[in-house]
Simulated scan of single mutants.
Amino acid sequence: MTLLEELMQIEHRLAGGRGDVYRDVLADDALVIVPGAVLGKGECVAAMDASSGWDSVVLEAPRLIESAGFASVVYRFTGERGETAYSAVLASTYRLPDRRLVLHQQTPDVPSS
């Protein structure tokens, strides 16, 4: 399995997971940047435990960037929860070799007018 495939497998776990998955994957000093908030590990775990989760998710067009001691994956995320749809470009940076997520950022699509 390639590094890209391995990291995307982790991203799929996170997309469908609850707080316990985030607790296992996030580094203790991780930051998660979502629309309107910057969360530390504890805040992110609590938010995921309070979330109803996605009914369906699609992660597509992943790209990998490797650097000394780190790897980032960037991809398009689409999720549906009931009548609500969310699409964004997501970026996750992992510390190597332990595969701990240190930084995650979501850039939501801007509706066209």
Results as ranks from 00 to 15, higher is better:
38 V>I: 12
49 D>Y: 07
42 G>H: 05
99 R>C: 03
27 A>R: 00
97 P>D: 05
27 A>H: 08
78 T>F: 13
30 A>E: 00
56 S>L: 08
64 L>A: 05
32 V>G: 00
25 V>M: 05
27 A>G: 06
80 E>V: 08
43 E>L: 11
104 H>M: 07
47 A>Q: 07
8 M>R: 05
19 G>Q: 01
69 G>D: 10
13 R>N: 09
106 Q>A: 13
87 S>A: 15
85 A>Y: 13
26 L>V: 01
107 T>P: 09
82 G>Q: 04
62 P>R: 05
45 V>Q: 02
73 V>P: 00
87 S>N: 12
33 I>P: 03
17 G>P: 02
74 V>D: 04
17 G>S: 10
85 A>G: 09
71 A>R: 04
26 L>R: 01
24 D>Y: 04
22 Y>D: 11
45 V>H: 02
15 A>F: 06
65 I>H: 12
16 G>A: 06
86 Y>G: 05
42 G>S: 09
44 C>N: 10
44 C>I: 12
41 K>T: 04
65 I>C: 11
58 V>P: 04
12 H>L: 14
65 I>S: 12
79 G>Y: 01
48 M>H: 11
5 E>V: 04
23 R>N: 10
42 G>P: 10
89 V>A: 11
58 V>N: 10
16 G>Q: 03
84 T>I: 14
89 V>T: 08
11 E>L: 02
43 E>G: 15
2 T>E: 12
72 S>P: 04
105 Q>N: 12
44 C>G: 04
98 D>Q: 09
32 V>P: 00
103 L>P: 07
77 F>K: 00
43 E>M: 10
23 R>Y: 13
22 Y>A: 12
74 V>K: 08
79 G>V: 01
61 A>I: 11
66 E>Q: 13
7 L>C: 06
20 D>N: 13
106 Q>V: 02
77 F>R: 02
72 S>Y: 06
60 E>N: 12
108 P>C: 11
